[in-house]
């Protein structure tokens, strides 16, 4: 973008210094991620530039060592179970809340999204103590339940947002054409709110997949997830495999969230909202 010709010298200086400042901030935002990725190809196990040589051995360790593959599998399993539960419960609740005249709507909404508000350490410690009394601590079920509680607010919020623009006359139109309620839901409502449901599901997945504080308290070595494996690795001595793991995770979460963004656009288009 060129500077307009009518700008004074002062304005030009302000304009260019703003641009330089913004570029530096953007560099600051992106640099840690960009700086760490090449280190994962380092042939030696230290973290400085220049690198003496290139190697894929840290990726080999990440993809073939049982400790890491086990953690990856565990993370996927927990995250998928969490996603299914959270999407189901969250979508139902959002559908209920979207109906008119819902009593004490804002209070119930506040309670439903409280897991997003309470500092995660309090949630982790509280659930740890309570689940331990129910013999749920250090079990797969305990971790999944805890993650589901943390993940549902995201589903509730995204589906509620999609429903807020949903034209309710479509449901009446469906009903007046003789469709029973479940047909109306699956043939009319569901296709329209599906983008919201999927992005809610992806948020739920990412929440569980990245979560470390709750598993730190609630999980035993048998439920060692990827973040837990990373966390326990870096506390003592950083293994370069962590840089490989970080790179894979960055690419993975980017792919997931690009999907969310595309879905959001599609949903806006479907609802006729001007982007």
């Amino acid at each position: 973008m060129a500077v307009p010709s009518y700008f004074t010298t002062g304005e030009k200086i302000a304009h260019y210094s703003l641009r330089v400042f913004v570029m530096l901030v953007l560099l600051f935002l992106i640099s840690p991620i960009i700086a760490v990725m090449p280190l994962s190809f380092n042939s030696e196990s230290f973290f400085t530039y220049p690198m003496p040589g290139y190697s894929l051995k840290w990726y080999e360790d990440f993809f073939f060592n049982d400790r890491w593959t086990g953690a990856l599998r565990m993370s996927f399993f927990i995250a998928i179970c969490t996603t299914i539960l959270a999407t189901f419960l969250g979508t139902l609740a959002a559908l209920g809340l979207a109906r008119t005249n819902f009593p004490a709507k804002s209070t119930i909404m506040a309670i439903l999204i409280s897991p997003m508000i309470v500092p995660v350490i309090i949630s982790a410690v509280g659930m740890f103590k309570f689940y331990a009394q129910l013999d749920l601590a250090s079990t797969l079920l305990g971790v999944i339940l805890a993650h589901t509680a943390l993940a549902t607010p995201f589903v509730v919020i995204t589906v509620t947002a999609t429903l807020s623009a949903f034209d309710k006359t479509l449901m009446r139109a469906g009903a007046s054409c003789g469709a029973p309620p479940h047909t109306v839901f699956f043939k009319v409502v569901m296709p329209l709110i599906l983008p919201g449901m999927i992005s809610g599901a992806l948020f739920a997945f990412v929440t569980s997949f990245d979560e470390v504080v709750v598993v730190l308290f609630l999980a035993s070595p048998e439920q060692r997830t990827l973040p837990l494996q990373m966390f326990s690795g870096i506390r003592e001595m950083i293994s370069p495999t962590i840089t490989a793991a970080a790179t894979v995770l960055v690419l993975f979460s980017t792919a997931l969230l690009v999907t969310v963004e595309l879905l959001r656009r599609r949903s806006e288009k479907l609802r006729g909202v001007q982007a």
């Binding site: 419960l89 969250g90 139902l92 609740a93 559908l95 209920g96 809340l97 109906r99 005249n101 819902f102 009593p103 119930i108 309670i111 439903l112 409280s114 897991p115 309470v118 309090i122 949630s123 410690v125 509280g126 659930m127 103590k129 309570f130 689940y131 339940l145 805890a146 589901t148 509680a149 549902t152 509730v156």
Partner: peptide, 29 residues
């Protein structure tokens, strides 16, 4: 009937959050 239906939809999540999340936190605090 409509309101009951709406409540029925919200109830599972509401009960889940209260039992698995809020009660543990209050018990701890």
């Amino acid at each position: 009937r409509e309101r009951l239906k709406a409540l029925g939809l919200v109830l599972p999540l509401f009960a889940f959050i209260v039992l698995s999340f809020l009660v543990p936190i209050f018990v701890m605090l």
